[in-house]
Design a protein around this nucleic acid. Structure first.
Lengths: 157, 157
DNA sequence: CAACTTAGTTCCTTTTTTAGACTGACGCCT
DNA sequence: AGGCGTCAGTCTAAAAAAGGAACTAAGTTG
């Protein structure tokens, strides 16, 4: 499986991975959610090489996750802003942060705390079923082949 | 930033990315959640090179995400099973699948449908606040530095 | 005994990533 | 006007990672 074909696999995970499934892209997105928007700011906070940063930003723009918006005419300068499609990556990022908090923490405690403005409390993200609102566990989910695939149905572990 | 130092960054996202933040690892995990457990099965369904598969499985075992369990004594054969720590990656995988379903779909419809055994319905995963149960949006979250970091507080976009 | 299976390892080539210098268009200071 | 600094990149050589394909080892099957 080549990376240019990954995008066309009949699997939504593979398609997502084709876009954001590499280490730098995920870290760039973290910065985006922390309101970083400019080339120099990404570069200095991530210590990513300028070359790769340039490539990754282009890719994120190409996929409609970031918008390249001019903020100065002379000289021409641009910043990178999350689109709606990009903002919707938030659950992925938060799920990763939460897993890291839970399983990769050290004695010093969490690096960041998240406050929900609506209720004013510090929270953790929880994934629930859209239909019944119950917390989701892998073992309670049964997977069926959908219209975008023709194989037999499968069940999760 | 080098990949061996990433794990020690004061950022839970970086730490998670250090473990599962590459394309093959994410695809291997997808297979794990679809009950694939054996070397040959991973290899033939993913078309990953045997070399890389071997490396990635070792890494996942080292981080306690998979357990290498013998299923035959003579010859010695092992299979790879998700640990509890591994099962808890489910929200990350599901969030990625859901984003792919929403933003990377084609005219044929979804590759897979998910049924929640508890309520019997086809569902989408939704991320909510652990405290008030409301659906989470990036713009309603305020980020503070926690004990594991010393910098000033930040706010999300 | 030859062929097959499973779970890898080894070797060599190709692709990606890294590190760091370089460019170009300006803006600011004196 | 000259020199310095900033921003958003590009370029190049060297190192690291991934890909491809053959090979090993231990046992099983026909």
């Amino acid at each position: 499986m080549k990376w240019d074909t990954l995008e066309e696999e009949p699997c939504s995970l593979a398609r997502t991975v084709a876009v954001i499934g590499d280490r730098w892209t995920l870290l760039i997105l973290r910065e985006c959610f922390l309101r970083v928007r400019r080339f120099e700011a990404f570069q200095s906070s991530l210590q990513i090489t300028r070359h790769l940063l340039s490539e990754r930003l282009k890719k994120l723009v190409r996929f409609g996750i970031l918008r390249r918006v001019p903020y100065s005419e002379t000289p021409k300068r641009y910043e990178y802003i999350l689109t709606q499609k990009g903002l919707e990556l938030y659950p992925i990022i938060m799920a990763m942060v939460h897993w890291g908090d839970t399983h990769m923490g050290d004695e010093r405690g969490r690096p960041l705390l998240h406050e929900h403005k609506s209720c004013g409390k510090l929270f953790d993200p929880v994934m629930v079923c859209s239909e019944c609102g119950e917390v989701l566990h892998a073992k309670q989910v049964h997977v069926h082949a959908g219209p975008g695939r023709k194989e037999a149905s499968l069940e999760t572990t």
